[in-house]
Simulated scan of single mutants.
Amino acid sequence: MTDLEQFDGLGLSTYLIRKLQKKCIFTRYELLITSNAELMEITGLTEAAILELKEKIGKDFFHLQQSNLNNWKTYTKIYNTGIENRLDILLAETPLKTGSIWEICGKSGVGKTQLCHTIAFNFAAQTQGTVLYIDTKCDFSGTRIMEMLRCRHVPNNICGRIMQDILVERTGTAEGLCEILERLDLQLNAGADADGGNIKLVIIDALPAVFFKYRSELNHLKGKYLLAKLNNLVYQLSKEHHIAFVYVNLLVNIEEEQQVPEDMDNEEMSEPYEMPSASLNLAGCVGMRPALGEYWNRAPHLRLSLETPLDNTSITNERILRVIRSCYTAVGTTCNLHITTAGVS
């Protein structure tokens, strides 16, 4: 049902609504910005009738827009990653906030999980809310969080609160991942006093691990269905409950993806769905592209690529974080990060 059909006070017949739709006028806003002369030609109504129609729409439409704006101001809260002199400066125009949907991608072993640990730790430490960390590879480490606490000399009474504010759920299937998010939705609908009522950030580490099995032709359609279901759940939770999402994906090698062994624990998984038309041209990642196909390529609001510097000749803790997709800011900007015992900084 279109926006015009949902509005009861217009007095437009179904026939006139169909005529407007044929001219790509589906919403009240589109009707308001269309000239009176054009609307008279489309509908056959007099100019007086058109003016009366616009007056009715205007009273309701602008009241609704003001209500939506007030609602956005009420629930929108700007968070930060805690990597203040690096990542938060890079993303000053598109910060982590309520409803954000971010993706961190990169080669296997580049440090994506380390970055997720740091974001979860900093989020909980700043008392911004509870973090739900969904672990699909059994990579979450409470020991690593304790190491970060010790290195930052966090008082014992604060350590317990931080650990309690990072909730961990583990699953090895895409179905299980969707079930966790569906359960979270039910808990949030039950109210703030229910379990999970204070969850403000969900980290999914990582998506490819649970979608690997669906790359075969036999399971292809089921995989696409579950991917679409996951995407709908993420957007529903971000919009209705104002939760921020950060999930992990892989950059996969286009030439070698068919040579990946059938191993559920191997991060270097191949592409289970249709290919994007072109690879990314990233420093240190030439010929690479995000896994999960063209459909998922458009899913996140912001996609970040974690890379090792090109001039590295040995193992190092230096990394480059690059914006490779953004709905709100320019792509290609970078910042330098370091992986340390106290976390990513």
Rank of each mutant, 00 (worst) to 15 (best):
L4D: 08
L64K: 13
E318K: 15
I17F: 06
L39G: 05
F245G: 11
P155T: 12
L337Y: 07
A124N: 05
L233K: 14
L32H: 02
C105I: 08
R322V: 09
L292A: 04
L177T: 01
K73S: 04
I166N: 07
K137W: 14
K222F: 02
N157L: 11
A228Y: 06
C24Y: 14
D205T: 01
L51H: 14
A48V: 15
C178F: 08
H63M: 00
E217Y: 12
A124F: 08
T113C: 02
N122W: 02
C151A: 15
A209G: 02
L304R: 10
L321C: 12
P208W: 04
G293W: 05
L230E: 02
R322M: 09
S270K: 12
L304M: 12
D263I: 10
Q236A: 06
G223D: 06
D185K: 15
F62D: 00
K19V: 01
A278I: 03
L306T: 07
T313A: 03
E318G: 04
I78K: 13
V286P: 00
T173P: 12
T94N: 14
L282Y: 08
I180M: 09
L201K: 04
S13C: 03
Y29P: 00
L237T: 06
C285I: 03
I204V: 09
Q164G: 00
I33L: 13
S238H: 02
N71W: 01
N231E: 10
L132I: 10
T341A: 14
D3L: 07
K107A: 12
I83N: 01
T27Y: 13
R289H: 09
E240T: 04
A244W: 00
H220F: 15
L221K: 14
F61C: 06
T27L: 13
E262F: 10
V154G: 09
I78E: 10
N71I: 00
A291W: 02
W102A: 01
V131F: 05
E93P: 00
I243W: 00
S100K: 01
N71S: 12
L45W: 09
Q187R: 13
